[in-house]
Computed example of a mutant assay.
Amino acid sequence: MFGKKKQQPQIDKEQLELIENAQKRIKQKKRLYAHFVLFLIGCVLLIVANTVLGIGKDFTIAGINWFVYAILIWLFLFIYHLFNVFITHKFMGKAWEQKQLEKLVAKQQARIDTLKEGLKKEEELQAKSEVFDEMNTPKPNLKTTKNSQLTIIVAAAENNAIGKGNQLIWHLGDDLKRFKALTSGHHIIMGRKTFESFPKPLPNRTHVVITRQTDYKVPLGVIVVNSLEDAIDASRGDKQPFIIGGGEIYKQALPIADKIELTRVHESFEADAFFPEIDPKVWKETHNTFHQKDANHDYEFSFITYERM
């Protein structure tokens, strides 16, 4: 008696719309059925009126009784009614379909707008986070960012001479064979002048050329970078990239290299390019093979391997 007022059940607007359209559809079909019954009865009456009662018995058009034309016209009207019910006016009608389409488009647009707003906020937060990280995280050096064994390969005289006029001072066949055997299949990092000393790119090696020139032209497959850091990054897929010269590149690479493959030519030469001094406190000699001079080699030399301690 004093309880809460009983709530009346609510019908969803879309469900109500479906019910109303269904009711309208039933009425359409009932009218069509009534039209069909009336058409059959009318046809019978027209035939009886002409043949039994003699109404318009003598009236013909092109030799055909008038009631035939009347029946055909009525049949056309019935077919037109049938077409309207099942073709022109579908179950929910064109207007209803258009209305539902507009609703769907509006809902999708609202979802898109919501997603865009969320993405915009996420991008702003990410940008702020990246700026914060960049400002508060110390920049890593080359030594900590590389994940491969960076190896220097060089042929140097007793006075550390490595070249003159952008050319080798000596020709040692075994040294060239060793260079090819060690570097084949790897990235070789070099300065522009060293690259230009080659008649053409060396086979079976990926050349990474360091130059300050922004429009430096190279053959297909040669990688051009602007710094040693970029060269190491370009070689990150290689477990053992090689630094092959020249003097300035060796100087930059020595503090961060893991290994040195040195051909020490036991002679001193005049030169304009030199290899830096190898500090025995930093580098440990792990291999040394001596070669005497012979018919194919004008100088004594040694293959020496150093590894960072």
Rank of each mutant, 00 (worst) to 15 (best):
V222T: 07
K177P: 09
D175I: 05
A95W: 10
A157G: 12
V48P: 14
I304Y: 09
E277R: 12
I64C: 07
L46Y: 03
K164D: 09
A110L: 11
P201N: 06
S268H: 05
C43N: 12
K259I: 03
Y33M: 13
V105C: 07
I87F: 01
N166C: 14
E124C: 04
I87P: 05
N147I: 01
N288F: 11
L104S: 07
D258H: 12
T88M: 04
I11K: 09
V154N: 06
E130F: 01
L254P: 15
P280T: 01
G165N: 12
V222E: 04
H186E: 12
A234E: 04
K200F: 13
Q109P: 08
H171C: 06
L125R: 08
E122L: 15
R192G: 00
V68G: 11
K139A: 14
I169N: 01
F76W: 02
A22R: 14
G221I: 05
K57Y: 05
I61T: 06
L16T: 00
K99V: 02
F242Q: 07
L168N: 07
V52H: 03
P9E: 10
E267Y: 09
H187C: 01
P138S: 04
E124R: 02
A231P: 01
T144R: 11
K177C: 09
A34I: 14
K27Q: 07
N147L: 00
I71G: 00
S184M: 07
N141S: 14
I189G: 00
A181M: 03
A161W: 02
E270H: 12
L38Y: 06
S129V: 04
V218E: 08
K139Q: 14
D175Q: 01
I11F: 03
K6V: 07
K239H: 11
L228D: 08
Y33L: 15
L176N: 08
K57T: 01
V224T: 05
G237V: 10
E123C: 07
I61L: 15
F83L: 13
Q213G: 08
Q240R: 15
F269H: 04
N136F: 09
G173C: 09
M135A: 13
K143G: 03
A295Q: 05
I73C: 10
I210N: 10
P255Q: 04
Q108D: 07
S184F: 10
N226C: 08
K90L: 04
W74K: 08
Q8Y: 00
D174P: 13
